[in-house]
Computed example of a mutant assay.
Amino acid sequence: MNQEPTQLLASVSQFGIQLSATRRGARLARLLAVEQLRSWELVYAAEPAAQIVAELAANAVTHGHVAGRDFHLALLAAGATLRIEVTDTRGDRLPRIAHAGAGETGRGLVIVAALARSWGVWTGPVPRKTVWAEVALSP
Rank of each mutant, 00 (worst) to 15 (best):
A49K: 06
L109Y: 11
L19V: 13
L19M: 15
A74W: 01
A116K: 09
A45D: 01
A60L: 09
V34A: 08
A50I: 05
E134K: 05
E35M: 13
L42K: 00
S20C: 02
A57R: 14
L31S: 12
I84F: 03
A114F: 07
A78L: 11
P95Q: 11
A50E: 00
A74N: 09
A100M: 05
A60C: 12
V112T: 05
R30V: 10
A45L: 08
G108T: 05
Q7K: 09
A57F: 10
T130I: 13
E134L: 01
T81I: 07
A46N: 03
G64K: 10
S138T: 13
F71G: 08
A50S: 15
N59K: 04
V34K: 05
G103A: 10
A74R: 06
H99L: 13
E85N: 00
G91V: 12
L76P: 04
W132D: 05
E85R: 06
T81W: 01
Q36H: 06
G68H: 04
T62Q: 13
E41R: 06
V43P: 02
T22H: 06
N2W: 11
E4L: 14
A57Y: 06
T6Q: 05
Q18P: 04
R38T: 14
D70I: 08
N2V: 09
R117W: 02
G64S: 04
V12P: 01
L73F: 14
L31E: 15
A10Q: 15
A60K: 12
G25A: 05
S20T: 15
F15D: 00
A45N: 03
R30G: 13
A58M: 08
L32E: 15
I17W: 00
L75S: 01
R83K: 10
W40Q: 02
A45P: 00
V86L: 09
L37S: 03
E35L: 12
E4F: 06
R96V: 13
A80F: 03
I52N: 00
A98D: 10
T62P: 04
V66C: 10
L94K: 10
I17Q: 04
S39R: 14
A29E: 12
N2S: 04
R128Y: 11
I111Y: 06
A116D: 14
D88Y: 08
L76T: 12
H99F: 13
A21F: 11
E41V: 04
Q14H: 00
H63Y: 15
I111S: 07
G25I: 08
E41H: 06
K129F: 13
R83A: 06
V66M: 14
A26V: 08
A136V: 05
T81R: 00
G101P: 15
S11V: 01
R27G: 13
W132L: 09
L28W: 09
R96Q: 15
A60G: 15
A10D: 13
L31Y: 01
A100W: 08
V61Q: 09
E41A: 08
E35T: 15
L8N: 01
